[in-house]
Design a binder for these strands. Structure first.
Lengths: 191, 191, 191, 191
DNA sequence: TATGAATGAGGATTCATTCAT
DNA sequence: AATGAATGAATCCTCATTCAT
């Protein structure tokens, strides 16, 4: 009995995901350029040819992966509420979750950062990234405005940069970075 | 009649520097792996072979480059005084210079950050980097201790992370990042 | 529908052998260092890349080739019987076959000798060679001991050297070397 | 005061010899192809450029070296007397000196043998070699004819081959090869 | 005569991608 | 859908040779 359309669909999705997971692992460990298609497919437990059934190219895998990661991160980071304005609790949550996520999924972040540093690759995802980040920027802007910060736009960018710096150090040295204490400092500063 | 030892020395130094300069440019623009030896030597205006008169390999070029950059940056950043303790003015200077350097020499920083993200490459220079950074860490630690900060070690790591985050954003978006305002925020926070 | 495991196995074996055959031809004609990978793969009628699917490097090809050749030669030379002692007939056979093989397969011998002269290359296969030759040495030793030779160890080494010398000249000048007459001289001397 | 012509001549000769000596050493250790001009000139203690003042090319160095070696070996081997016929003592001497020379100057022999195995290189010197060896062949032929050997030509080729085989083994394993005992066996056989 | 920086053609090796099955 | 053998362009690196001084 032939498989139903739904079954095929399921198989396809699973295979795709297996490949993306493997790619993430290998990209994070070796960097995009050093990672070979062979390593990715071996990690995924499939043949080289099959990868090209699901993705146009190695670059396509990266692109899909990045979009998926960004979506996942944003999703987990904080589901933006409709009012589009952050409360103090939102910011506290943002800080806590932001740091915890790095400690939990350093792979995601290594890839995110390493891609952001590779000019050619960056252009692939930069536009999309800005677009997705926009609502958060706005919400944060509002938060600082409400707090009576003199120049909320500047503060927002300052805050973003600070968070990225913390996450960067967290990612590079998750063992000894004093994450919990730093969270407190952040909360003290931005609330 | 052959050239004198000194003449050869000069020639060697100049060629070496030409290669390092070119490598910096190309690595920063394309990333280490995408940068071809051909691109580096063409940029330097020399033959491919000559590069191998001065460096064992492409990797060796990167290594030498990174060490050179780190030394240069540290030098300009702030010549560490013998007392090994930062004053308020030192910190203000550190902040100002730190941000200005990124705006002036984005190449250096792109390379610095991109290397930090590539595990294989990182391992080449990590040890040396830590060693060179050590005195600054200690001096900063002392500064915060003197200021009566409760946990100077944590504050020092927080400060490093914040500075890196600022520099990172500065580097990615030098056009619109509000560098001057952020400097003021930093000084307000850490002095 | 992919090929079966067995089909792939067959394909691999055939390609591998094609490469080894081609390598033998080219190495023997041009020597190891002058032989280019391009020449080998063109001779084998395959792409350059494929060689690296089957062998780690050009050196690896040489190594595998030498081991294969030595095994093949030993096999044809004389399947060593379990008693591990040569009879007169064995020695006669050894002499005849030893010379005939050179005339039939000069390539094998050119490679064998040329490798023996290249220190870097030699070290790759020397150990294996000694190991494989050991039983023959012992069997010959026994033969001379049984014949009442005063110093069988010396005679054995003498015999080996003489055979190699004959084979060497045979190989260099197969057209005019009086192989048949020399066989008779050898048999007269060592039986 | 400028040097006299004679002095220049002397300097030239010495430099040439220094290069040839160095080349011999390096060729024997690494083989012709693996030996770099750099290694040769460094060993000789001169600059790369200077080598090309004395020799057209690396191949030219090899050629000159081979001719020199052959002449030297032949010279030491046995100054052929005018009668052009070997006596028993000549043959004994030939055997003894032939083996001793290998033990004393393995470098010369390694080069001699290794060159003989490299087809392209061989053609350069083969003609010359035959020409120089001719008188010895003839003299040996005469010796065996006088001894009443049935087929002196065959015996002569047999003898040459045997000597080469002994020398080959001597060269490959000078430490354990029983040179003295083998000399006696040879003398017993061919006198 | 002597130097060694510079060249560039040539060779080994890698790896994303294709394709017959 | 799935396989992995096969391809070849791209890349790193070597080294004999040249040349300005």
């Amino acid at each position: 009995m032939p498989r139903t359309k739904g079954q095929f669909e399921t198989i396809r999705k699973e295979s795709r995901q297996k490949i993306l997971d493997a790619a993430l692992e290998v990209f994070a460990k070796q960097g995009y350029h050093s990672a070979t298609v062979d390593a990715i497919t071996k990690t995924a437990g499939i043949s080289k040819g099959l990868m090209y059934n699901y993705f146009k190219s190695k670059e396509d895998v990266l692109q899909e992966l990045m979009l998926g990661i960004m979506e996942a991160l944003m999703c987990e980071y904080m589901p933006l509420k409709s009012e589009e304005k952050f409360t103090e609790d939102d910011i506290i949550n943002f800080i806590n979750v932001g740091i915890d996520l790095v400690l939990e999924k350093p792979h995601y972040w290594k890839l995110y950062f390493s891609v952001a540093l590779q000019p050619e690759v960056m252009s692939i995802v930069f536009g999309k990234m800005m677009e997705m980040g926009q609502p958060y920027m706005i919400a944060m802007n509002e938060y600082f405005r409400d707090k009576g910060v003199e120049n909320p736009e500047v503060m927002m960018r300052y805050f973003s940069a600070v968070m990225d710096g913390i996450q960067f150090h967290c990612m590079l040295d998750p063992k000894t970075f004093p994450a919990e204490e730093v969270k407190k400092l952040l909360i003290g500063q931005f609330i």
